[in-house]
Design a protein around this nucleic acid. Sequence first.
DNA 1: TTTTAGCACTCTTTTGCCCTGACTGCTAAC
DNA 2: GTTAGCAGTCAGGGCAAAAGAGTGCTAAAA
Lengths: 356, 356
Amino acid sequence: MSKELSERKKKILHSLVDLYIATGQPVSSADLQSKYLPEVSSATIRAELSALEALGYIEQPHTSAGRIPLKEAYKFYVDSIDGSNACNMLTDQETAFIRNNFFNRLGQIEDLSKEAARIISDVTNYTSFVVDQSQDGDVTIDEIKLIPLKRGKAVVLIVTDKGMIADKAIDVKEDVKPEYIETAGRVLNKVFAGKTIEDIKDFDLKEIDNEIKGFKDIFDEVLGILRMYISEHSSDNVFVEGALKMLDYPEYQNIDDAKQFLSVISDKDAVSEIILSEDNSIEFTVRIGKEDSGVDKCAIITAAYKVGDEVQGKAGVIGPERMDYKKVISVLDYVKKMFSTVLGGTKSLNPFDDEE
Amino acid sequence: MSKELSERKKKILHSLVDLYIATGQPVSSADLQSKYLPEVSSATIRAELSALEALGYIEQPHTSAGRIPLKEAYKFYVDSIDGSNACNMLTDQETAFIRNNFFNRLGQIEDLSKEAARIISDVTNYTSFVVDQSQDGDVTIDEIKLIPLKRGKAVVLIVTDKGMIADKAIDVKEDVKPEYIETAGRVLNKVFAGKTIEDIKDFDLKEIDNEIKGFKDIFDEVLGILRMYISEHSSDNVFVEGALKMLDYPEYQNIDDAKQFLSVISDKDAVSEIILSEDNSIEFTVRIGKEDSGVDKCAIITAAYKVGDEVQGKAGVIGPERMDYKKVISVLDYVKKMFSTVLGGTKSLNPFDDEE
DNA sequence: TTTTAGCACTCTTTTGCCCTGACTGCTAAC
DNA sequence: GTTAGCAGTCAGGGCAAAAGAGTGCTAAAA
C-alpha cells in the first residue's frame, strides 16, 4: 500500500476522488479522460484504474460500472490537500460571513463554541460539532459563599476560577441564626477553597470530621451540589449543529441509516467520545469510516484550536465520506484562526480569566 | 357532516378505524365482516362503506382497494373513546413503570417535566412533549443580592418566588468599596423587589432616575441580565422526548417528511406554539392533521395537567394519524393524575414554594 | 515498451407485458 | 332491506427483452 505511485496514477486517483465527491456517481474512464486527462486515451486510463484497483485504492460496485474511491483513496486525497497551499477555498462572502458572526456575539465561552458550531455548519452544509476543553480537569474552587435568604432558605454559591456554580436553595433547619450561617460559610471555605473539581470527586467526609460537627447537613448539601454539577455538566461542553443536514445527502436517504446517525449524534457523550479519541497533538485529523462508532459511512474532520500551545477545544465536521474536504478544511482553518484571535487576544471571554 | 349516523354505520366506522390502526392497511369489507360483523354480509357492509365514503369519513386509495379513514373518521373514533369508561388500556407493568419512574427522581419542576416526557414516550413509543406553564407570567422578584467576590468582581443573585437566577459575574469598576456594593444592593432591591418578570420587559430606566445616580452601570447590567434571562429561558420549559421514534412508523419512511418533522420538533418555539395554541380549558385535545404547522400527517394529543383549577402545563404525544389513541389517552390520563398528586400533594418540588 | 482503437462481453436499469389477487359496485333474487 | 354472485378495475409481482454504461482484452500503431 505504501509504494510510491507514479505521477500519472496520482493525478488519476486525485481526479477520480474529485469527480466522485462532486457527483457521487461511480467514475468511468471516459469521464476522467474528458474532464481531467484529455492527453491520454480512456484505454490508458482503464489500465491505470485496473492497477489502482489492484493496489486497493478503488473498486467497482459491479463489473460494468465505473470506479468508486475506497478509504485509502480518500486518505491519499486528503493528504494531498492537507499541507498544501491550495487551502483557501473560501469566497470573500464566506470569510466575511464567518468573521461577522464570530465577533457578533460576545458572551461566555459556551456561547462562542455554540456560535462557532453554527457557523461551521452553515458554511459547509455539513453537521458540525465543537467540544470545549478549556474547562476540563483543572477547575479550582476559589471561594464558597453561603447566602441567607428570606424564609429560612440559603443559597450556596460556588465560585471557581473558570466560572460559577449557583444552585438551588437549601433549607436551613435552625431558625436562621445569621452567625450560624456565617460560620458555616467560613468552614466551607476553609475546606473547599483551592480544591479542584477532580479532588471533590473522591472526597472523603471523614477526613475533616473534627471541623464540621454541627454543619454536617449543610456540608452534605454542598457536596451533593458539587457532585451533581460534575455529573450533569460533564457533557455541557459539546455542541452539535446542523444534525439534520446529513439527511440531505444521498448516503443517508435510507431511513434506518439516518436514524442511526441521528441517535448517535444527539448523544453528547457519544459525540464527545468520538471527537476526543483523536490525537490531541495534531492540528487536523481526518478519519474516514470509523468503525464501531455508530457513524461508519462518515468522515470526520477535526481541528484542535489552541491558545499558545494549549489545546482549548476541538471543532469539526462530520459528513459523508464523499465530502468537500478542501472546503471543510478551509473553513476549519479559518475558524481556528478566529478562535485563537478571540481567545488569545486582549479580550477574554471568560469573566474570571481577566487578571493574572 | 353532522347528521347522526345509524348505529350500524357507527359500528362499521369504529371497527374500520380500529383495524386500520392495528394493521396500517386499507380495510376491506370482507375483513370487517369476518372480524367485527359476522351477522351481516360483506355486501351489506360494502353498501354502508359506500355511504360513509359519500359522507366524507373514508376513502379508497384506488378503486380496487379497501378503505382508509380520513380525518373525520379519526375524529369520530376519538370522540367515541374520549369520554368513555374504556380508558384504562394500561397493563399493570405499565402503570408500575410510570409510577416508579415518576417518584424516582425528586428535583425541580424542570426535572419532573423532562422525566414525564421520557416516561410518556417510553410507554407509548411515540414522540412526546411536556410544556411547563407553571412559571409563566407571574414570576415575581423576591429579592436581589449583590455579592462581592475576590478580584473586583461581584455576582448578582436574583431570587424569585419560583426559583433563582444567578448570572455571570459583573465587573465592579471602582476599587471595591464594600459599602458601595452594599448600597447598590439596597437600591436594586428597592427598585426591583415585588416586580414581576413581565414588568421588567418594558421597564423604563427614566422612571427611577433620581435613585440610581452613581449605580447606573450596575443597574444596567442587572437589567441586561434580566432581559437576557427572559429571552433565553422563554423556551426552557419545553421538553421533547423520543423525536426519533417517529421514524419507526411507515408514515415517516420518506426521508423528506422525516426531516421536515424533525426540524419542526427540534425547534422548541415551534413546538411550544403548536401545543399552547390548544384550548386551555379542555382536559384532552386531539388534533388530527393540523395544517400549516409543518406537522400535518400527524395527530397530536394533549392533556392539560392542573393543580386545583389552575393549569400547570401540558403533556402530549405526537404521532402518526394512525395512532393507538386509546393507549395514548390512557397514558396521558395516568400521567395527569401523577402530576396532580406530586404537584398538589404535601411535597412541593419547588424549594421556593414551601411556605405560605 | 507504451499507447491506442475497436470490439466483445458483462452487468444494471428500464421498460413493457401479462398474470394474479384483492376489492368493489352492480344486479337480480330472496 | 339484505344477500349471493359476477363482472370490472386496479396495484403489484414476475419475467423477458432492450437499452445503456463500462470494462477488459487484443492487435495494431507509435
